[in-house]
Amino acid sequence: MDSQRKKGILDVCVLAALKQGPSYGYELIRSVSVCVPVSESTLYPILKRLEAGGCLTTYRQEHNGRLRKYYQLTEAGEEKIRQFLDEWSEMERVYAFVKQMS
């Protein structure tokens, strides 16, 4: 997949992966990669951007003698998921159009 396109879609995949509850980096890569393969360097800016945009919050919690960073979905993040799902029906029409024309 084109790398920019992947980035856009990954944002919402990361948010969706947090829907079931807070998670940490390693686990996020594993759960998102089920759908789109993602690497550490790709995930980093996504997490930063989503945090800066208020879509997720972070906290640290002790795990095996170290502090692991956890990411938690916010109300704004849930709203983004809903927005994506709403926009998707529009994208489906675009997709159908492009497919039909080519």
Partner: peptide, 13 residues
């Protein structure tokens, strides 16, 4: 032009 503005929230700001 960055096509990914289709997903408005994912654009790096």
């Amino acid at each position: 032009k960055r096509w990914w503005h289709l997903f408005s929230f994912s654009a790096p700001q």
